[in-house]
Design a protein around this nucleic acid. Structure first.
Length: 511
RNA sequence: GGCCGGUUCGACUAUCGGUUAGGUCGCCAGGUUUUCAUCCUGGAAAGACGGGUUCGACUCCCGUACCGGCUACCA
């Protein structure tokens, strides 16, 4: 029996989490849960120069919003901690030393400016076999020189010594066999001058120490895979290595290339899961959450970007995704992100979501718009009435504000041209009838009855109901939109209806 | 430039040698809604190219083109 499935998502805390990142988490999570395995969050904070405060908390918050809770993480704890690479520094040094002792790695004393000069001098410079001997390192230098340099604490890095004439072959779960000629890859830095590991060393050491069985990451990592394979071979043995899967990229909707933060700003849609505010510039980049997406929809649309279950089914709950997810149905090619389809997913989720639950999500938007909700049950009812008209959560404001307070702008221009005295009289009579009902103690009347009364009265005034409906609607909601007029009347009740009619009649007579 | 990966309607995709190449988003037209949305019906719309293999290729092989990724003491 195989060891328990363990996967990890290992982001760098450098800023907001974008679509591609969240999808990588999702596939990790789905795979883990489908196989009764564990999902680990590991923070790759080895680059001090790129560290951004608040980014780790942001990642945690994002995972929580998405419903992708880790089994182990810096805050959830676990038996394989610490889960921040900056806190595991000693481990990496140990393995770097081992590699040097085995002859698989070496010290390099070249300064950043040395390297810069070399790159300027030689086009397409690679720190590899071709130029190794021209550089300052423990292969080109004598043992005495190296020892002296080390003794003086000369800043240095540790580089992997890529082998000659070796083919690195490995099996990628979604791509099949991938093959590299090791000599075409340069001698990557493993341990930096500040003692921190680079990604290459850290990922291998930590995946081993944390007993990771399956390693999933974006396709951009494929070219450095041979380095990692070799490190596994030198350090822990290939039989211990996790299975790899390089996920396809999420591309720009227009043009070409990897989707970036800039594309969202340019094209007017979010690329981050949640709002991200840069702690230094204070600049906020909008997220799917704040744009008004439901987490269920966000997860759903991400899952279908590069994966499907082989049927025509497109709407999936998290449980269904877990039950049906399989890596062999993940696409090889990158997928262009389509915001229109993303909104469609959200609309579908709004339609099927429970009204009570929606009301809680929508409440903050009403608060923000300074629309007071006096009765919660009323809000729930209204949500049911307008939900199929909403793509994003803020749409509930535009679609239903008039249920809570009279519209401030009235599209009288759409009534005025065909307005006539007969209609004026009709509405005055209607107000009279409603007023009688109010006097009789009725606050509202069922929509069907309202409609019947309305038609009767229209006939009495020798008018067709059809030419009265639009003006009536505009009087009530301010424009040409919204649910059925009589449902609106029933909801806002007779008194308010009369007020709105009278206000509008006044508006029309002064014009 | 080098290395690696990818390529079916505008977009997301189904197809695992034999189909009128299917679905969804979007778009267009019609119906329902006496508004808008929903909903229903219909429509336009695709195998990058060239060679093989095969009775037969979108599917397998080779080449070309195009697109992308990587080529940092960043991940």
């Amino acid at each position: 029996m195989d060891a328990k499935v363990r996967v990890r998502f290992a982001p760098s805390p450098t800023g907001g989490l974008h679509l591609g990142g969240v999808r990588t988490v999702l596939f990790n999570y789905l795979f883990a849960k489908h196989n009764n395995g564990e999902f680990i969050l590991r923070i790759e904070d080895t680059d001090q120069s790129r560290f951004v405060s608040g980014a780790e908390q942001y990642i945690l918050d994002t995972l929580a919003w998405c419903g992708l809770s880790p089994d182990e993480s810096p805050v959830h704890g676990g038996a394989y901690g610490p889960y921040r690479q900056s806190e595991r520094k000693a481990d990496y040094k140990k393995y770097a030393d081992q590699l040097i002792a085995q002859g698989n790695a070496y010290y390099a004393f070249d300064t950043p400016s040395d390297l810069e000069a070399k790159r300027a001098e030689i086009p397409n410079f690679q720190y590899s076999r071709a130029h190794r001997m021209e550089m300052k390192n423990s292969i080109s230098l004598s043992a005495e020189e190296v020892e002296a340099l080390l003794k003086n604490n000369t800043p240095h890095v540790v580089r992997i010594k890529m082998p000659e004439n070796e083919e690195v072959v490995f099996e990628d779960i979604i791509r099949g066999e991938v093959c590299f000629d090791a000599s075409t890859v340069d001698d990557k830095v493993l341990l930096k001058a500040d003692g921190m590991p680079t990604y290459h060393l850290a990922v291998v050491v930590d995946d081993h120490l944390m007993k990771i069985t399956h390693a999933f990451r974006g396709e951009e990592w494929l070219p450095s895979a041979p380095v990692h394979i070799l490190l596994w071979k030198y350090l822990f043995g290939l039989d211990q290595m996790p299975k790899w899967a390089h996920l396809p990229l999420i591309l720009k909707p227009d043009g070409h290339g990897k989707l970036s933060k800039r594309d969202g700003e340019r094209l007017g849609f979010p690329v981050f899961a949640m709002d991200w505010t840069d702690p230094i510039t204070k600049e906020t980049t909008i997220g799917f959450k704040e744009k008004g997406f439901l987490p269920e929809a966000f997860i759903n649309l991400l899952a279908l970007l590069g994966w499907n279950d082989g049927t025509d089914k497109e709407i999936f709950t998290m449980e269904e995704l877990i039950a049906n997810f399989s890596l062999d149905r993940v696409h090889k090619g990158g997928a262009k992100f389509d915001y229109e389809k993303a909104k469609w997913f959200n609309q579908e989720w709004i339609k099927i979501m429970d009204n009570e639950k929606l009301s809680q999500l929508v409440q903050p938007y009403f608060d923000q718009a300074a629309i007071e909700i006096h009765e919660h049950d009323y809000l729930v009812k209204i949500i049911g009435l307008v939900k199929e008209r909403c793509h994003l959560l803020p749409d509930f404001i535009t679609q239903s504000a008039f249920f809570f307070k009279a519209p401030t702008t009235i599209d009288t221009a759409s009534i005025a041209p065909k307005w006539e005295v007969k209609k004026q009289q009709f509405f005055e009579a209607l107000v009279g009838i409603y007023t009688d009902h109010i006097s009789a103690g009725k606050q509202t009347i069922p929509a069907i009855e309202l409609e019947a009364h309305f038609k009767e009265l229209a006939t009495l005034h020798e008018l067709k109901p059809g030419e009265l409906m639009l003006p009536f609607r505009i009087m009530l909601v301010g424009g040409k939109f919204g649910p059925g007029v009589f449902e609106i009347v029933e909801a806002i009740e007779l008194k308010d209806t009369c007020n709105r009619i009278q206000y509008c009649l006044q508006l029309l007579s002064t014009n």
